[in-house]
Simulated scan of single mutants.
Amino acid sequence: MGPDNVFAVILGVCAFIFIIFFLWSVPVGLWITAKFAGVKVRPFRDLLAMRLRRVPPAALVNSLITATKAGLKINLDKLEAHFLAGGNVGRVVNALISADKAGIELPFERAAAIDLAGRNVLEAVQMSVKPKVIKTPPISAVAKNGVQVIATAQVTVRADIKKLVGGAGEDTVIARVGEGIVTTIGSSESHEAVLENPNTISKVVLGKGLDAGTAFEIVSIDIADVDIGINVGARLRKEQAEADTRVAQAKAEARRAMAKAEEQEMKALTKEMDAKVIEAESEIPLAMAEAFRSAKLGIMEYYRLRNLMADTDMRKAIAVSSNPEGGGSQDGVFSAI
């Protein structure tokens, strides 16, 4: 093989490698598809540059073709910038098409911001066209008469495209609706008023402007179910009565213990006084003996005193026999004689 043939082979191999690299770096088929779709895509400045920046050309070009066919004018550079920022290009384009067909004003910049904020912009557009129904969990509240009322509501919301970035989500709407239902039931005079006209809850809650600061617009609030729970007022009154009873019992026990202590104290005092009386009576014979020795009391006077005491005892015995209930015993200074 001559030098010319070797050069030709090397040249052919280089040409083959170049063609393979060109077809890989510049997707000719994608460029032809875009050309026939009326989308202006430059092979080297767009397709090759996206390859070098590690951006899949098919994802962006196909989305651009879809937008162009839908009548939207979108710059390929904006799609690439959104992709490099971590956004979902296909979802943003589909959201723009849906918003355009529904007559909703949605610029590309706002749709890209909503997508980068972590919200599903396509679902938001669909929710703007077809409102979503959010069912709240059972909400318990107590009317003024103390009866518990359990209500379940269905909240119909429409997405507000302008408030999706920075607006509160569904959890905030449910919490606010629950708060409004609790307030409305709590201000009702009785549970019967709530059962008779549950739509008053919807009217009052809907008029509070609960969608302020949220990403949604509340279309309607419907009470799906109303049930009666326990009688909280009666239970509280029962518990209060039981507590009052326990307090009264404690106070009565304290008074009984105090009376018992006073009784024991009086018994001790009585015994002390009895001891003093016995001590005093034990001194009577000594005093009489001293009176005899000092001639202050004579024998005749002593006998007259004894006769008087005997006469008195007889009179008392007669009185006791005629009136058994009024009996008594003699307690005198001479009982020990």
Rank of each mutant, 00 (worst) to 15 (best):
D211Q: 10
R255V: 15
A254P: 02
Q249R: 09
G209M: 10
V247Y: 10
E239C: 02
K208P: 01
S202F: 08
K238Q: 10
D211R: 05
A248G: 01
D227W: 10
V232A: 03
A193G: 08
A234L: 09
M258S: 12
S220E: 15
K267R: 06
I218N: 03
I228D: 02
A250F: 12
S202E: 09
I230S: 10
R256L: 09
A234V: 08
D227S: 12
I221P: 02
K203L: 12
D227M: 13
E242N: 09
A212Y: 13
V219L: 13
G213C: 06
Q264Y: 02
R255K: 08
L210E: 01
A193S: 12
F216T: 00
E196R: 14
V232G: 02
G207L: 09
A268Y: 02
M258R: 08
E196S: 13
E253P: 00
K238Y: 07
L236I: 15
L195D: 03
G213L: 04
H191V: 14
E239W: 07
M258E: 14
N231G: 04
I221D: 06
L269Q: 01
R246L: 11
E192R: 13
L206F: 13
R237M: 09
E217C: 05
E192N: 11
R255M: 10
A248S: 05
K267L: 06
G209E: 11
L236R: 08
A215S: 09
I221F: 08
I221C: 04
F216Q: 01
A248M: 11
G233M: 04
E265C: 00
A257R: 09
E253F: 03
R255S: 05
E196W: 11
I218A: 05
E262V: 00
I201Q: 02
L195H: 07
A243Q: 14
L206Q: 15
E242M: 11
L269V: 01
Q240W: 09
A257T: 04
S220M: 10
D227P: 00
T200R: 15
I223G: 01
A268H: 02
D227R: 15
V194K: 06
N231T: 02
E239G: 05
D244H: 09
S220D: 15
Q249C: 03
R255N: 07
V204H: 07
N231L: 03
A243T: 15
S190W: 13
G213R: 02
Q249P: 00
T214Y: 07
A243V: 12
G213T: 02
M258N: 07
L236K: 13
N199E: 14
R235F: 08
A224S: 14
K238C: 07
G233D: 06
D222A: 14
K251W: 07
R256W: 05
E192W: 15
A254H: 12
M258D: 12
E196P: 00
K267C: 01
E262H: 00
A259N: 02
V204N: 09
A241H: 11
D222G: 05
I228Q: 01
K267H: 09
R256A: 03
A224D: 11
R256N: 06
S202M: 05
A248P: 02
I230H: 10
E217Q: 13
R256H: 03
E242R: 07
S202I: 11
K203M: 11
A241K: 11
I230G: 04
Q264D: 04
A261W: 04
P198Y: 07
E253W: 03
I218D: 07
L195E: 06
E253N: 10
